[in-house]
Computed example of a mutant assay.
Amino acid sequence: MIEMRRYLHRHPELSYQEHETADFIQKKLREYGIPYRSEIAGTGILGIIKGKHEGRTVALRADMDALPIQEENDHSYVSVHEGVMHACGHDAHMAMLLGAAKILKNLQDEIYGTVLLVFQPAEEKSPVGGAIPMMEAGVFEDFMPDVIYAQHVWPYLPAGQIGIRDREMLGASDNFKVILKGVGGHASLPHLTTDPVVTAGFLIVSLQTIVSRSLDPRHPSVLTIGSIHGGTAHNVIGNTVTLEGSIRTFGEDTRKRIKERFYEITTNVAEMYNNEVEIDYQEGYPATVNTPRWARLARRSAQNLFGKDATPMIEPAMASEDFSRFLEKIPGAYIFLGAQMENSEEQKGLHDPRFNINEEVLPMGAAFLAKVAIDTLNELKENTIRIWID
Rank of each mutant, 00 (worst) to 15 (best):
T240A: 00
H234C: 00
E244Y: 04
K256Y: 08
I265Q: 10
M272D: 01
S227T: 05
V241N: 01
R218F: 14
T254P: 11
N274V: 11
M272E: 02
I225T: 10
E271T: 07
I247A: 10
S221G: 15
F262S: 05
G231C: 01
F250C: 09
T224V: 13
S246T: 14
Q208H: 14
Q282P: 04
I237E: 04
H234Q: 00
G226M: 03
D216E: 07
E260F: 03
M272K: 02
V241R: 00
T232P: 02
H234A: 01
N235R: 01
Q282H: 07
T240R: 00
E252T: 14
N274P: 09
G226N: 05
G226E: 06
G230K: 00
T266Q: 02
I228L: 03
E260W: 01
N274M: 12
N268H: 08
L243P: 02
R213I: 11
G231R: 00
G238T: 03
T224C: 11
E244F: 08
N268P: 04
T267Q: 13
I247Q: 10
H219E: 15
T267H: 13
G245D: 08
P217T: 11
G245S: 08
T249L: 10
G245K: 05
R218T: 15
I265G: 07
H234I: 00
Y281H: 10
S212G: 13
V241M: 02
S212A: 14
E264I: 12
N235I: 02
T254F: 14
D280H: 08
E276C: 07
G226C: 04
I237S: 05
V211T: 06
D216K: 04
S212F: 11
T224M: 05
T266P: 01
E252M: 08
S221Q: 10
R248H: 10
I279T: 07
N275C: 15
S227Q: 08
N274C: 13
N235A: 02
G245L: 06
F262A: 06
T249K: 09
E252V: 14
